[in-house]
Write a protein that binds this DNA or RNA. Structure first.
Lengths: 298, 298
DNA sequence: TGGTTTGTATAGGATTTAGTTATGAACCTA
DNA sequence: TAGGTTCATAACTAAATCCTATACAAACCA
């Protein structure tokens, strides 16, 4: 079915208000014949005579009155739609789905959430914890809007920004023989130690493993399913591990039975970054978040 | 402000429903580039990105969801408007203003009203009593939709139809010396009588007066303000008068003190007719009324 | 890894729609 | 009867809309 145009309805309303074709045409800033043609078109589409043309102006038929009433409401609603849509511009609204990898979520998400809530108080945040691979997939499919993970990630459809560098610390039980001081320790000293790693799938595992390989260190074949578990194993003196500095305040807090020492003359670690679809408008709104967090985590 | 088009909103809704430009374009029976262009235009008008274009289809932004919701409602309302307007075709609806001249209203309006209510039960009838001149003016200005009056009336913007012929009867007091029989009476016999007429302004007066002049009869200079008054004067034996046959059943009913005799070999009288603006759609609906009444009053 | 499918965007041209001015006929008013 | 209304019509122009063809990117699949 061929629907009437909003324009036609607008003209009809003007015609009803002004009471004559010529005045209505002036009010609409178009010529009188143009208005005549549009009204005629509207009457044709509706299959109804909406008004009587008299020598003195116009008279609305009963159908005309009905249509004008509804048209007014319709135009008002359409205006509302536009206003509403235009207002919706200064901050993000609605649901934002945030994903974070498990080795970052507990330690870094709180600050991200805080910053987002500060800048975009009208949005509802939803938090998800996924490993990098799944997180990227969810991002591509629109299940997530932003991801917090380790960079670099090179993907044509995704954009990312580094927030901070997250150096690795050596974590060991407080009883461990290397725990006599908290001064930097060189990588060589770890060669004889039993190095515990996370299980496959965690990008942190890959990063730590790579570091070991590059330093000719053979890691243990015991694998932990999560960072807290890993730290528990360290606390139980089953070995030592490489712990991101960002996790230390929580995992190696005083009383945890675990202590950390930085690596000497090495900036081994991971990059903490945000990632999002390039096509998503969220990119625009993330700049302030990024500057917030990179300051905080400097 | 440049409002979005209903078409653009329709396309947006289709896009939201189908999830991809190509499928939505198919559903709308247009090409995919055409749809792309329209959606782009809509986004421009709203100043908002409504959706993300991904390699796999589309994702609605938060603004997109909002706009789609409102757009659905708008399209539904517009459809309602069309359906409502189209349905409004089989019978008349709403207010119909009917005017009748005072010498017809009491006797003929009831049947007209009955017929209108039968054929157009959804309309509200409003009755007005005006003399011909004012009635025609009200008709032209749209204050009335139909008039019941004496024809012929030749006006370029008005159409009319004759319903019946309404012959004049001679009305006299039952005590009158002509009241000895109810057989036809010739015009000549009235020459010596005192003929009472209505006051100026009533078309019935003009018609009766013309008949008198043509027949060389001098009417009385006493004038009645209304037909019932005139009949009262006749009953009081102040003279006789010419009474339309349509008024007789009421004005000269048994017990009224008045009786009537037809005119011999004369079809003097008036034509009962309907009149309306040619430009008014009511003309279409009047045909059945006209056939009703012309049968009834044959 | 290369071909196919499935997405969207862009370019150029045809068509339709909406607008213009000019003009005309009917009517009101002075 | 002249002049100013009214709306309608005609002929033309401008712009919006849509088409086909093409490009290009990503996902899929053998």
């Amino acid at each position: 079915m061929n629907l009437p145009t909003i324009q036609q309805l607008t003209y009809l309303v003007a015609l009803a208000d002004e009471g004559s074709f010529s005045r209505a045409a002036d009010a609409c800033f178009i010529s009188q014949p143009a208005l005549s043609a549009q009204i005629k078109g509207l009457e044709n589409r509706l299959g109804q005579q909406l008004l009587e043309r008299t020598s003195r102006g116009i008279l609305l038929t009963h159908q005309g009155v009905q249509v004008v009433d509804r048209a007014r409401a319709l135009i008002r609603d359409l205006n509302d739609l536009v206003i509403e849509a235009k207002n919706d511009g200064d901050d993000l609204r609605g649901d934002i789905h945030i994903g974070a990898i498990p080795t970052m979520a507990p330690y870094l998400l709180p600050a991200l959430v805080q910053s987002l809530r500060k800048h975009h108080p009208h949005s509802q945040l939803h938090l998800h914890e996924e490993q990098t691979h799944d997180l990227l997939q969810s991002l591509r499919y629109g299940k997530l809007d932003v991801g917090l993970l380790a960079l670099p990630i090179e993907e044509p459809t995704l954009s990312s920004a580094v927030l901070a560098h997250d150096p690795f610390l050596v974590a060991m039980s407080s009883d461990h023989r290397l725990a006599d001081t908290s001064s930097p320790i060189s990588l060589d000293r770890l060669a004889k130690e039993n190095i515990l790693l996370l299980e496959e799938g965690h990008c942190l595992r890959d990063q730590a493993e790579n570091l070991c390989i590059r330093s000719n260190i053979q890691p243990s074949d015991i694998q932990a399913t999560s960072l807290p578990t890993l730290v528990q194993m360290v606390a139980a003196n089953m070995g030592i591990t490489l712990l991101p500095r960002s996790a230390a305040p929580i995992e190696a807090r005083t009383g945890s039975g675990v202590m950390t020492r930085p690596l000497r003359s090495s900036n081994a670690g991971r990059s903490i970054g945000l990632i999002w679809r390039t096509s998503s408008p969220i990119g625009t709104y993330l700049t302030s978040i990024i500057s917030d967090l990179s300051t905080l985590w400097k």
